[in-house]
Amino acid sequence: MWIEMTLNGKPVAVEAPPDISLLDLLRDYLNLTGTKEGCAVGECGACAVIMDGRLVNSCMVLAPQAHGSEVITIEGVHGPDGGPNDLQQNFIEYGAVQCGICIPGMIMAGEALLMHNPNPSRQEIRMGLAGNLCRCTGYQQIVDAIEATAKGRQKG
């Protein structure tokens, strides 16, 4: 079937079987491999994308459900010059990145959190990341990076 959506701000139409996940659609049919698969059962958040303003695990979304929606993946997150945005820059500066496999999902979760709660406490940041597993960092520097970004955006 044909699936149409707005992907990272641009309209796309792609033909794909109806029984695949949005994750597979992104990775295998649209060649956007920034979104990762860690479990395929909705437990790890490596596949997180923002769909119609909500953070979703794309492995748990059937591709046809994305029809007509607006999807943002890690490839759609960047600064005006195409380089890192403030959140991504803070992930670098605060040492929030180790192996990196969870990081696209973490960035998406961070953006979604800040969209809905521009001034979160550290505990609220932890709650916002609770669906994203990281085996390397212990989360502390990820929380630091999101906290710093929130403060920076508050200042404008």
Binding site: I92, V97, G100
Partner: peptide, 21 residues
């Protein structure tokens, strides 16, 4: 100092085995 590979990772550009085609 900053990790030498952090930029590629935060941009979603780092290639892991499952990303190779």
């Amino acid at each position: 100092a900053q990790r030498v590979d952090a930029l590629d990772k935060v941009m979603g550009r780092a290639k892991y085995i499952a990303d190779y085609r």
